[in-house]
């Protein structure tokens, strides 16, 4: 992870702050920083979203393409994540600098997203299916990538419109598909089974949610939990070299589960609220 340089005194200050439940920006251990969300910011993508969490800025675009299903899952579509760490975020991402982080995030996201049913994306079993490319762009680093990225991805998938296939003809071995000419004739994904990730960073003896970049530097280990609307967990990942006690781990996961459910519901509220503004709503993007 892109770490910031801190000296011992600053680290001590952050550590003591977490201990007395008053963090450097006034939050308590369980508080998130205010977030800002906008969907449909990229007009050329099938679905897109931008999430800003304090200084962390994430842009997600979803592209749809017709592909052949995997032989092991002939009746399912495909979902692929790709993370791009922009060198604008931090000079450390320049060249191939962000590659490791990008691979780490994308592989963990696909693990967490195994819960999403891909059967609706199938068009003709064994022959054709929709493949969704989820492109994630990290524009600015302010800590807590996982939470921000997962929220943005879920919002972008909510916003994704997959074109309607009106007919398919089997011609010898190949399939001919007829996709509706009307760009508005499309269907949307059911994202109730899409998880959000909740990161809890262990700083000293306590865990905090939504760590800033400075706090991430102080943390020895973080637990990332993927939580569904229903409260089911789809993945638990540990980041960092530190160890976590068994009891702490169980408690941490329980806390994360509770937070995850609430986070899911606030995300859905925000998305529905934006939806209610209608398709003609003004797009703000990066300006204003």
């Amino acid at each position: 992870m892109a770490s910031v340089l801190l000296n011992d005194a600053e680290k001590t200050f952050i550590l003591h702050g977490v201990e007395v439940d008053l963090r450097c920006d006034g939050r308590r251990r369980g508080d998130y920083r205010p977030m800002e969300l906008e969907t449909d910011v990229v007009s050329t993508a099938s679905g897109s979203a931008r999430l800003r969490l304090a200084n962390t800025d994430i842009l997600v675009g979803v592209k749809t393409e017709i592909d052949v299903p995997y032989p092991e899952n002939p009746e399912e579509g495909k979902l692929e994540f790709f993370v791009d760490c922009s060198a604008n975020a931090t000079p450390a991402f320049e060249g191939r600098g962000g590659e490791d982080l990008a691979n780490e995030i994308s592989s963990r996201l696909s693990r967490a997203y195994q819960s999403l049913p891909l059967a609706p994306l199938c068009i003709v079993p064994k022959q054709a299916c929709w493949k969704l490319y989820v492109d994630i762009l990290i524009l600015e680093c302010g800590g807590n990538f996982y939470d921000a990225i997962s929220l943005a991805v879920k919002a972008a998938l909510f916003n994704t419109r997959v074109p309607q296939v009106t007919g398919s003809f089997l011609d010898g071995g190949s399939v001919d598909l007829e996709v509706s000419d009307d760009p508005f004739q499309c269907w949307r994904l059911d994202i109730t089974k899409a998880p959000v990730l909740v990161t809890l960073s262990k700083i000293g003896d306590n865990c905090v949610v939504d760590p800033t970049a400075e706090e991430e530097t102080c943390s020895v280990a973080s637990i990332v939990v993927a939580v569904l609307d229903s409260g089911s967990l789809t993945a638990v990942i540990k980041i960092g070299e530190g160890s976590v006690h068994e009891q702490t781990l169980i408690e941490t996961i329980k806390t994360a589960q509770k937070i995850g459910v609430e986070l899911n519901s606030s995300l859905m509220t925000a998305l529905n609220q934006e939806e209610s503004l209608g398709p003609k709503r003004q797009r703000f993007g990066f300006l204003k």
């Binding site: 308590r28 369980g30 508080d31 998130y32 205010p34 977030m35 800002e36 969300l37 906008e38 931008r50 929220l151 949610v209 939504d210 509770k258 937070i259 609430e262 986070l263 606030s266 995300l267 509220t269 925000a270 609220q273 934006e274 503004l277 709503r281 003004q282 797009r283 703000f284 993007g285 204003k288």
Partner: peptide, 14 residues
Amino acid sequence: MAHSIRLASERVDF
């Protein structure tokens, strides 16, 4: 536990 997700349309002009 507190969090808020606001929309871009509510963005504040500083």
